[in-house]
Amino acid sequence: MRVLKALAAVSLFLFSPAVPSLHARETDLRPALPATAQAVLVEAEGFAQRGGWVVDPQFMDQMGSPYLLAHGLGRPVADAATEVEFPAAGDYRVWVRTKDWVAQWNAPGAPGRFQLLVNGRPLETTCGTEGAQWHWQDGGSVKILERRVRLALHDLTGFEGRCDAVLFARDPQFTPPNQDPEMAALRRVCLGIPEQPEPAGEFDFVVAGGGIAGTCAALSAARLGLHVALIQDRPVLGGNNSSEVRVWLQGARNKEPWPRLGDIVAELEQPRRAHYGPTNTADLYEDDKKLALVRAEPNIRLFLEHRANAVETESGKILAVVAQEIHTGRRVRIAGRWFADCTGDAAVGALAGADLEIHP
């Protein structure tokens, strides 16, 4: 549990496992939270048990953090749960950052409905039922009797419910900020994240994206003697060819005039296949084998569950990539001599100012 305290009765609490307590000056907190709004902020991606909910980082560049997604294909997923220590018992107003993901098409039904359970009891408000954009949905008031509280996200539909964060405020008039820079400042203060990213080293070759292209590039460079950083925003490598997406490796390789082109792909390839459908199970994609191959290379430093979402340039040349850790929000600066954009959507190139065209 990460705790920040200030002298003027301002306390922010953010659940984040295995992180020491941090302390902030009173002046550090004022831009993010009024002194009257003693509050508890819980980031959904920091829940200790995620149940059937999954972390979705693909929009964290726009949102500032990932969120939890109830991807159940029509079957409600198991609850995500965590425990949070409140500064004091009492009445709190609850805010849940979410959205109705079909509202932008004026579609009825709010398929992403879920409940927030406080010590096993649901709020009266059903979450995910309003607003086409991310916002703080008012969850009403709740009485906290004991400082140690168990929270749970209870999916009602299995159809992509979304939760970014939960905030409890002692001041019933306080509304949490929803836009940057105020939103970013609130998160930064709560997480104890410095304004500047922490240095993570200098490398010969920095690869952003751990799909098949990025993994092969990193392995090849490392075996040629380069000091390599491989950045991947998922808990597994392989991208489409992982248990998360389940697309088989395809394409012509080991052909003349480049008969060795494809050797590393062959190392990653799975020996067993199944037709798409119920038999196309996660174990067939051998995520552990991909991770083992990368971790066996002494010249590779793997930044797993880090998202490359900023770059430093000078005179049109990339000097470093800044990557944000998925669960804690902490940022690191990864400097390099050469860079490979294997993100799948040219994110690093676009951030560096390269020509970019987007076609429907």
Rank of each mutant, 00 (worst) to 15 (best):
D288K: 12
G139H: 06
H154L: 05
K5I: 13
R147I: 11
Q137H: 11
R188L: 09
L191N: 03
E269N: 11
P278G: 08
W136E: 01
V247F: 10
T313G: 08
Q173D: 15
E357G: 06
A222Q: 07
N299V: 04
Q62E: 04
A152T: 10
R162L: 10
A229C: 11
P257S: 15
W105Q: 04
T328C: 10
Q250M: 04
Q104V: 11
P271V: 03
P20W: 06
L167V: 09
R301I: 00
L230A: 08
P108G: 08
S11A: 09
Y285S: 05
W101V: 05
F303D: 01
N309V: 12
L33F: 14
D56V: 00
R331Q: 11
L293A: 02
C216H: 07
A103W: 04
A323H: 09
A103M: 09
C342N: 07
A308C: 09
H135F: 13
H227E: 15
A185T: 04
N106M: 11
E124L: 12
G109D: 04
T175D: 00
S141F: 03
L268F: 11
P197L: 15
F174K: 03
D171E: 02
V55P: 04
P298Q: 11
G51M: 04
A346I: 05
F339H: 15
Q324N: 04
P177W: 10
R2P: 02
G209W: 14
E314W: 08
L293K: 08
L4P: 05
P20N: 11
L33P: 14
G336D: 03
P176E: 09
R188F: 02
L12Q: 01
L293R: 06
P235H: 13
W101T: 01
R170P: 13
P181H: 00
D79Y: 00
A213E: 10
V265C: 09
H71V: 02
Q250K: 04
T27E: 14
P360N: 08
A44D: 01
V142F: 15
A78W: 01
P108H: 10
L156S: 08
A107D: 08
T98S: 13
R337Y: 00
H71R: 03
F59Q: 15
Q173M: 06
L123K: 00
M63R: 04
R188M: 01
Q58H: 06
A81D: 01
R162F: 03
A48V: 07
K289W: 13
V142C: 10
L69G: 02
S243M: 10
G214K: 00
E182A: 11
R50W: 09
R113L: 08
P122Y: 14
